[in-house]
């Protein structure tokens, strides 16, 4: 027998082989924005601890055009991540009632509902209305 199995090399082009892989990478890429935003918040906390002057610096940075662009993008990516995550939640948390399983839409819906309520609560506390 003269076997000589050939191993095909794996390169980064797999990302572009199908839209589902591109969407996956976009979802994963959101972590850069979410991570950066978290660091920004940590810095903000530090500024808050250092008194009024430091806090004003923080607020001024937040108001810059670059910051606004960053926040818009971060919100978009974070929302994309949350939406995809909630839609996938039923796969990880199947709920069996009797013979059948609770519909996917109910479990996703519950996640979105809680998200909406918590968001409203945060906005309320922040004085938005």
């Amino acid at each position: 027998m003269s076997r000589k199995p050939y191993v095909r090399p794996v390169t980064a082009e797999w990302i572009f082989r199908h839209p589902r892989y591109v969407r996956y990478m976009v979802r994963e890429f959101s972590c850069l924005f979410i991570g950066s935003w978290t660091l920004l918040m940590v810095w903000g906390l530090k500024q808050l601890a250092e008194g009024r002057a430091a806090w004003s610096v923080f607020l001024d940075v937040l108001k810059t055009p670059e910051s606004v662009v960053f926040h818009v993008l971060a919100l978009a990516f974070a929302a994309y991540h949350s939406v995809t995550w909630f839609r996938l939640a039923p796969k990880a948390l199947p709920v069996q009632r009797g013979e059948d399983f609770v519909a996917d839409g109910v479990i996703s819906g519950a996640h979105f509902a809680v998200w909406a309520v918590l968001s409203a609560a945060v906005l309320l506390l922040a004085g938005a209305f």
Binding site: H18, R20, Y21, Y24, E28, L88, K91, A92, L93, P94
Partner: peptide, 26 residues
């Protein structure tokens, strides 16, 4: 597994291995 979900999309028998894997993680 990082929950790409491609496995479940191509499965001809609708096994949903991605779902199984997340349940195993939990």
């Amino acid at each position: 597994c990082s929950f790409v979900g491609a496995c479940s999309e191509v499965c001809p028998e609708h096994v949903d291995p991605a779902g199984a894997i997340q349940q195993v993680k939990i």
